[in-house]
Design a protein around this nucleic acid. Structure first.
Lengths: 231, 231
DNA sequence: CCGCATCCGTTTCGATACTG
DNA sequence: CAGTATCGAAACGGATGCGG
C-alpha cells in the first residue's frame, strides 16, 4: 500500500545559478552516463544495464523515473512485435550533448588506456567524438572512414551553417553507410588517436612506425587533421 | 596516529570511456561547483565556504585535497601580510572551463528566477557567461558594458584567433575597466537577459517595455545580439 | 579569525534476491 | 525482460571543538 516509488527528488544545491541548476538535474551519480548512452538512440532497460555495470537495477529505475519527470527522457511504447518499450531522449535531453562532449574532451586528458576500450560497441562513436574539435573546422563538407581495431566508423561533416553549434555538423555512423566513397580514410588504434590528440605522439612519427595511415584527398586530409587535433 | 585524512579516492565507474573518466574526477557532489567558484581567480577556504552554503567544512577540505591530488587545484602560500593561503586552479583545472560553461548553458534552460540571483557577486560573471554563445560571433573585436541591477560588468571580445576555443575570446571584468569607452552598452535585469536568450521574450517588445536598452555602434550591437542569442 | 578534524544522525548507493 | 524489495555500507550534512 505504502509506495516507495515516488521519484524522491534528490538534494538540491539551492543556488540561483545556472550551473547549480544543471547539477540539480543531472548531477547525481550515473545520471550523465545514462544520458551518454541514450545519446546515439533509444535503449531498453536491459540495454542500459548492460552498458552500466555496477549500477543496481533499483537505482537505474529510480534515475529513469527522475529523468522522465524532468522531461529529459521519455518512455516510448513500441509496436507489438518489437521490444515492449524503450527510453529515448527528448529535445531537452539532447541539449546535454555539448555537456557530455566537453566532459569527454576533458576526460581524454588523462586517458591512458584507450586501447582497452571495451563493449558496448555503441560507445565507440562517443569516444571518437571526444577526440574531435568541430570548432576548428573549415567551411566545406566532407566525409571520412575511421578504421579502428574495434570496427570501422563513418564520419560525415556538413558544411558550416550560418548559426548553431558546430557539434551538429558531425555525424558518426556505425557501421559506415555502404556504397559511399569517403574523401579520406584513416587507420589507427583508438589509443594512437588519443596520443596524437594529446600531443604525446607526432603524426609523422606515428606514420613512420605504421601506427597511423591516412589516405585520401588533400583538402579532406587537412580538415581531418584539424578535427582530430594533430600537430 | 591513525590518520583518516588519506584522500579516500571515491567510487570509480571503472569504465574505459572519457566521459566516465571525467566523472571519476569531478563527478562527486560539490566538486564542479568548487571549480566554478575558482574559475575567476584563487580563493581562500573561507571564501569557498561562503559561496557554497550547505557544504560541510570537512567535506570541503576533503574535496580540496582530492582536487589537489588530481592536479586540478594547487595550494598557494601568500606572502606574510596577506591571508595565509589560497586555492587556485592549475592549467589542467582550467580545462574544465568549457564543461562548466556548457553546464551553465544547459541550466539556463530552466532558470526561472534569475532576478533572485544572490551573492556572492563574483558569480555574476559566470551567470552572464552562461548566456553567451561565443561560437556565434563574427571576426572583429569589440567591447561592451552590461548594466545589471546587481552591478555593471565589462566585456571585451578579442578578434577571432586562427585556432583555440572561442570561449577564450571573452573577457568579463567586474567592475569594468575604468576609462575605456565601450562600443556598446546594454541595460537590463538578469532575468530579462535570460528570457531573451530563451526566446520567451522578443527584443523589440522588451525595449518598448523599458526592460532593455541597448546603445552604441551598429556593428557592435549586432555582434552583441548574436552573442546573447537575441532573435 | 581561519583552517581544518571529529563525532553523529540522515541520505544515498550497491549487491542480492525476488516478482509480474 | 523490466523492474521492485530489502538491507548493509558508504557518503553526506550539521554541530562542535581545537590548534595556529
Amino acid at each position: 500500500m505504502n509506495q516507495k516509488l515516488s521519484t524522491s527528488s534528490p538534494r538540491s544545491y539551492e543556488q540561483v545559478c545556472p550551473v547549480a541548476r544543471a547539477l540539480d538535474v543531472v548531477g547525481q551519480r550515473w545520471t550523465l552516463l545514462i544520458v551518454r548512452d541514450l545519446m546515439f538512440g533509444p535503449l531498453r532497460f536491459s540495454d542500459l544495464r548492460e552498458g552500466l555495470p555496477g549500477l543496481a537495477p533499483n537505482l537505474l529505475s529510480e534515475r529513469m523515473r527522475w529523468l522522465v519527470s524532468e522531461g529529459l527522457v521519455e518512455r516510448i511504447g513500441l509496436p507489438p512485435p518489437a521490444a515492449r518499450q524503450v527510453y529515448a531522449l527528448t529535445a531537452r535531453g539532447r541539449e546535454l550533448g555539448p555537456v557530455i562532449h566537453e566532459l569527454a574532451r576533458f576526460g581524454v586528458g588523462d586517458w591512458a588506456d584507450a586501447d582497452a576500450f571495451g563493449p558496448p560497441r555503441r560507445l565507440l562513436r562517443g569516444a571518437l567524438l571526444a577526440l574531435m574539435s568541430p570548432s576548428e573546422l573549415g567551411e566545406p563538407s566532407w566525409s571520412a572512414e575511421i578504421r579502428l581495431a574495434e570496427g570501422t566508423i563513418g564520419l560525415e561533416v556538413a558544411a558550416r551553417p550560418s548559426s548553431g553549434g558546430s557539434l551538429n555538423r558531425l555525424r558518426l555512423s556505425d557501421p559506415p553507410p555502404p556504397g559511399a566513397e569517403p574523401d579520406v580514410t584513416v587507420t589507427a588504434s583508438l589509443g594512437t588517436l588519443v596520443e596524437l590528440r594529446r600531443g604525446l605522439l607526432a603524426r609523422s612519427y606515428a606514420e613512420r612506425r605504421g601506427r597511423l595511415a591516412v589516405t585520401g584527398s588533400r583538402p579532406a586530409t587537412v580538415e581531418l587533421r584539424r578535427l582530430l587535433g594533430w600537430t
